[in-house]
Write a protein that binds this DNA or RNA. Structure first.
Lengths: 240, 240
DNA sequence: CGCAGCCTTGATATTCTTCAAGCATAGTGG
DNA sequence: CCACTATGCTTGAAGAATATCAAGGCTGCG
């Protein structure tokens, strides 16, 4: 972890993403305990700043409060990197390290972001008492596994158009600040990141975007994408 | 879940895989509580028998005691299936459903197997009291996420030879009944299953096995594979 | 204004899939 | 016990999808 501002953004009670985060479902007392015993601090990250480095000792999970991050993973020998996930507010980072002593992924901010550092030992302690917290934690873990399996399914069986359409729709859902689908998606990541995540060459991503544009499915303005025909995109994402 | 024998195979105390399963690390008292309060029953499965059907209400996890199972996943519309994982003794099934009300995967026995059904509500209750159990559960969850991310990395970035070499070495590790690497691997799954898991056509798997054979890396006797040159296989799995 | 990074597009090369045929194996019933 | 059949596996040839190589354009920042 690298140096970050020590400024403390919204406390749990005032936090916009409380509804979706690990603390969701806690009452006022619980929320207070969570904030003081479990949340170690809040990190304010600048674009491209690293939050977690692979190999760092694991005792902290991270909850995205604002912004967006990517997690990356490399082969043991360093060859072949891949983006494993894009993380929007409410998602938990570091879960794949629960079985190890050290973090298994790098995590980097795609835009200016804030992240809550969560003490894993303290979380464990607090879960003994707060069933709602345990339930929520397990929910997030399950969702994460589910999401990854969906990614595996994409990487294993889907062609380029399906992969890209699915990602765009994914980013659009929950991309609206209200958590609702938005008709315009701002890509916070480079074409390179997208390609890596989808298991494609970056040129393929570029070409596919152009094809979607020509087909009238969307409009491309740099990293802003206007979804013009959600229905057809959804059809492509599902069945090709 | 389909009908299974009601015979109860090894109790926890006598179980060979206790060392690797969810109950690892529990003392005698804990083990007793685990067996009586958390383990609902043990399923004896015949080859090809289904343990879990996608969509079944979720309140049970499964721990593999003996044998091997595969989990499969399909697109919502049913097109495109993929094998998500092969599960050997000690592994937990159903974790991806923790965030949902219903199971998200199918699970099928690849050979005659026994599986412990674990009540998720009871497990949650018992974890409040037994820290070691919580720790172990989180460890298994983390390992599962880690494993899946490694699969994503393979599916996204690796060529055919790398994928297959990595799988063979994976199956060899822990394939020995003592949990140690074995020099001969018995594939419990079809070429089709392997291909699906690796995101390839089954013909590609077959061809690649032949190439490995010609190169003197292994010998193929149906589903029994003798690994003749682990080192070179490992090199291929890592860097191609 | 100009540089640097990012993105698009085109041409070519490669990998993998698909289609098709034949072989081997394990299981079945005579 | 043996022949028979279904299933799974291997191999070959053709074709499709995608990567790679190469060049040029756009954009945002200094």
């Amino acid at each position: 972890m690298q140096s970050t501002s020590t400024h403390r953004p919204p406390r749990c009670l005032d936090c916009d993403t409380r509804r979706h985060c690990l603390a969701a479902g806690l009452d006022a007392t619980g929320l207070d305990a969570f904030e003081h015993q479990v949340v170690l601090r809040r990190h304010v990250l600048k674009r491209h700043q690293r939050l977690v480095a692979r190999g760092a000792p694991f005792d902290t999970l991270y909850s995205v409060q604002q912004g967006q991050l990517k997690t990356e993973r490399a082969m043991p020998d360093g060859s072949r990197r891949q983006v494993i996930g894009f993380h929007q507010p409410g998602r938990l980072l570091g879960l794949e390290s629960l079985g190890a002593n050290s973090h298994r992924c790098d995590a980097l901010a795609l835009c200016d972001s804030t992240v809550c550092a969560i003490s894993y030992p303290s979380l464990t302690r607090m879960m003994k008492q707060y069933t709602a917290l345990t339930r929520r934690f397990h929910q997030l873990v399950g969702t994460e596994l589910d999401r990854q399996q969906t990614s595996m399914l994409m990487l294993g069986t889907a062609k380029t158009p399906q992969r890209l359409a699915a990602l765009l729709l994914d980013l659009a859902d929950g991309g609206g600040d209200d958590g609702c689908p938005a008709d315009t998606v701002t890509l916070r990541m480079s074409r390179d990141d997208i390609a890596s995540y989808l298991g494609l060459a970056l040129e393929s991503v570029s070409r596919q975007l152009s094809q979607f544009r020509v087909a009238g499915l969307l409009a491309v303005h740099n990293r802003r994408i206007d979804l013009l025909d959600r229905e057809r995109l959804r059809g492509i994402a599902m069945a090709g």
